[in-house]
Design a protein around this nucleic acid. Structure first.
Lengths: 232, 232
DNA sequence: GTTGCGCATGATGTGTACAACATAAGCTGC
DNA sequence: GCAGCTTATGTTGTACACATCATGCGCAAC
């Protein structure tokens, strides 16, 4: 399957965005995707020069992107060594998940949008993609749909600080699932994700954002619990 | 009065921090302070070259700081024009305050610290400073103590993502109070702040972080309400 | 007097050369 | 053979020159 298209144009472009701003946003989105999908796994050493050459820019604008990703906790630059993809320890993971669980229900309480037919179509499409994934499971496909689902959920609030905060936290933990999953794990997780998205779709169809937020919280909690069980 | 000392060493230095990292942190903290205290008021145009010269560095490391502040919503760079200090509209302000009100009570629920004698001493000192401020009110002194109080509160949780999120949101709105305050307003607000800090101090003395979080939420809510009333 | 063009000016954006630094390989002395 | 120093190599950090762009002033045409 080719789910990559689901991750295109995640970040919205501003109407009066400068060329530099557009390039920054696109590079940031691309490299963040690569980190989240483990194309750049934790511990990997990136080269500014190699990346700059790949994207056809000089080091200067690329470094701005890497600094942003460093501020988001995904990279760490060390002089004389390189730019390293960060790992995350269980304590930090737990802190992030705890906060995410508190933020999820706010989706319906802080400036929610009205559910539109486009929203329903969006979750229908996600569910269809996930059903196809169940027939042909892959760790990469799982992650792509997981990320796309997050953005569909976060887009239900118009509270930008809330959305930005949830996005930052999500990407800090998004790549953890992929690490150390056996083929059997992947099959099970794909099925679990399809049930999760079905729940979201049903809540969206009902226009019940409060339910949506709490279902999200429940699934986030479940993910955290299973991660802890795997760790022991 | 000279309360400036309260804002020194707000950000903690990492043990194995590189010289570049230390310089970045210090410059970021200094410029953020200037924006929050309205030394750089909204709409003001900064010059990268002038700032670089003042701090004795080249444009390159300074630009990293300005980009970070841009990501935090405090600055906006426009090619051919300059680096502008942002303003904030009521809608965005409302969104930030709504989220801050939800996060405050989490202080006690997500990985709180045990209250130490140092914590009590810290709030005692803040209260003493604020009482002195009431005798000699000033908008700048008010802001400094307000910022220092925020950091004292945020330091009560060990959940770093929560602390970072609250800090980001706080600084997005910290400078709003100072705008358009008459001398009479300043006197009243200083008194109000002293009562607020007294409440915090009492809760800390009791070791009751849950009360501390909810008192914080109440005062945040009160601030928002008064801001809205001023706007109309 | 007014309008519109053109240029000077100063700002941020980009590219590049070099400095500072960490690492590993190799070499030398023992 | 091995320890320790040296050096080669590759990396990020810094400085600077130049490109690109927005703005306002001056001047000329009308």
């Amino acid at each position: 399957m080719d789910q990559e298209i689901l991750l295109q144009h995640i970040s919205k472009e501003d109407s009066n965005e400068s060329p530099a701003g557009r390039r920054f946003r696109q590079l940031h989105e691309e490299i963040r995707s690569r980190i989240s999908l483990l194309d750049y796994p934790p511990g990997m050493r990136l080269s500014e020069e190699a990346l700059a050459e790949e994207f056809g820019v000089s080091r200067t604008p690329l470094r701005r992107v890497l600094w942003q990703l460093q501020a988001e906790g995904l990279l760490k630059s060390v002089q004389g060594v390189g730019t390293l993809v960060t790992d995350i320890d269980m304590a930090a993971l737990y802190h992030v998940y705890q906060l995410r669980m508190e933020l999820s229900p706010l989706l319906a309480r802080l400036s929610p949008r009205k559910v539109t037919p486009d929203d329903i179509a969006r979750f229908d499409m996600l569910y269809a993609n996930c059903l196809a994934l169940v027939d042909d499971p892959s760790a990469r496909g799982y992650s792509i749909i997981n990320i796309a689902t997050f953005h569909a959920l976060a887009d239900m609030t118009t509270n930008e600080p809330l959305r930005d905060t949830m996005e930052r936290l999500f990407y800090q933990t998004a790549r953890i699932w992929l690490k150390s999953l056996t083929d059997q794990d992947v099959r099970r997780e794909c099925k679990s994700l399809s049930r999760e998205i079905r729940d979201y779709r049903d809540a969206v169809r009902l226009g019940d954002l409060d339910a949506l937020g709490h279902i999200w919280r429940a699934h986030t909690s479940s993910s955290m619990t299973r991660l802890q069980q795997k760790a022991t």
